[in-house]
């Protein structure tokens, strides 16, 4: 084996500068997750198949005839997204924990919040991709038109809040003895406001309600997103550092 001297040729190690370093680290974490996922597609396929199965079960459980559909579509969609979301969150954090990669991330001279935001971006991307696939499938199966810019915005806002708090709690859950079992138990009770608001706002758009009826829910989603992104930003250090 070649063991020639290791010198730093044209390479320079930069001290992490504040903003540039932060953005670069966020990008690196997200890029790493997306590349790995693009290659294995484990997460995406399991989330997608799981979502389709949930919708299938709802079909028989709720007898989704035309009249019922009107009122329950948004609920069915959000329950599906929430379940698929926990699946993705668990997997994405377990990958970090299993091979000690979390330590690898923590050893890098970057702000811990950068790691959090990187994971949020990749988790959000997985969830949105699944949602984008599920929507047309649902429209096709039940001939409901789901292509409504308002609805897409609600889905985005709801997913941000759900993933923001979910990433924080998943990082805690993977460090416990019970691991993945714990995540839904931790996440669902604190994610209730975001689910209620997302269901009501999506339902509002699907029923063609007036915007003034939907606005309070959208405001609630935005408030929730801001509060929980901010709080996760502040406490993530305590979750990953010893």
């Amino acid at each position: 084996m070649d063991s020639r001297p290791l010198t730093v040729s044209s390479t320079t190690v930069r001290r992490p500068s504040s903003t540039v370093g932060f953005v670069r680290a966020v990008g690196a974490v997200a890029w790493k997750d997306l590349t790995a996922e693009y290659r294995s597609r484990e997460l995406f396929s399991s989330m997608l198949v799981f979502s389709l199965l949930v919708i299938l079960i709802f079909n028989f459980a709720l007898e989704l005839d035309i009249k019922t559909r009107q009122s329950v579509t948004s609920g069915v969609l959000w329950v599906t997204f929430a379940f698929a979301g926990t699946l993705g969150l668990n997997r994405s954090m377990a990958v970090e924990k299993d091979r000690g990669c979390l330590d690898g991330l923590l050893l890098a001279p970057v702000d811990r919040a950068a790691i959090y935001f990187g994971k949020v971006i990749s988790n959000l991307a997985f969830m949105l991709i699944v949602e984008i696939v599920i929507l047309p499938v649902y429209s096709f199966l039940y001939s409901v038109n789901l292509f409504n810019p308002g609805l897409l915005m609600v889905i985005l806002l709801g997913s941000i809040g759900y993933i923001a708090v979910g990433t924080l709690l998943a990082s805690m859950a993977v460090q416990t003895r019970t691991r993945d079992v714990l995540l839904p138990i931790l996440l669902f009770p604190v994610a209730i406001p975001v689910l209620i608001a997302a269901v009501k706002a999506s339902g509002g758009y699907l029923n063609g309600d007036e915007f003034s009826m939907i606005l309070p829910w959208i405001n609630l989603l935005i408030v929730y997103d801001i509060i929980f992104v901010a709080i996760a930003f502040m406490v993530f250090d305590y979750v990953v550092e010893e």
């Binding site: 390479t11 500068s17 890029w31 790493k32």
Partner: peptide, 13 residues
């Protein structure tokens, strides 16, 4: 990935 995390420039080489 780790080169980016450590802020190394010209990392390919």
């Amino acid at each position: 990935f780790f080169a980016r995390m450590y802020g190394i420039t010209n990392y390919e080489l």
